[in-house]
Amino acid sequence: MASRKKTLLKVIILGDSSVGKTSLMNQYVNRKFTNQYKATIGADFLTKELTVDDRTVTMQIWDTAGQERFQSLGVAFYRGADCCVLVFDVTAPNTFKSLDSWRDEFLIQASPREPENFPFVLLGNKVDLEPRAISSKRAQQWCQSKNNIPYFETSAKEGLNVEQAFMAIAKNALAQQNSTVDLYNEFPDQIKLTNTQKPSGGSGCCQ
């Protein structure tokens, strides 16, 4: 791309309460894990600079509240997202079941240009814990049914796979942004809605 503008990627993390959304974000950005995280009210964000395919980009990671009723506040937070990260807890089956609802609600509220191609990434978190309730296979099947969403198994506590997952998230977000920019570029000239341009005789359709 010719643009020298600084690239900002907006990423939204969604999923049920206590699956580890805040912990994943903090493990990735600050490389630490504590039990001191508070329940997220509304949303918070952190930013991190990273290099993707030789380009420096700033990733703005939005962490959201997990309680279901907060979904109705989504619009303000989801606007302009380049990638949506869905998180569930591999030891809690109910958090896996909610994934459909989080995905659907995101698509409704963020209303991306091409919903079927909007990038999602799925993270199965807390793989350090036993007993496991959702197998890798089951999660992968869900991903396949949703147009091949990339899937990572992570532990925010141990820092397992977190870096790799967020790199994939960044790549997908960047690809999404490039495709939308290309879409804009397909219009060679701006359409001006002012009356400074005189209609060039006879060629207009409205005359």
Partner: peptide, 19 residues
Amino acid sequence: HGLDAILYSLKWFFVCFIE
């Protein structure tokens, strides 16, 4: 800049300025 008030003022109203 698309800065919606909910992004900064939610906790003022919602939890009486806690945090």
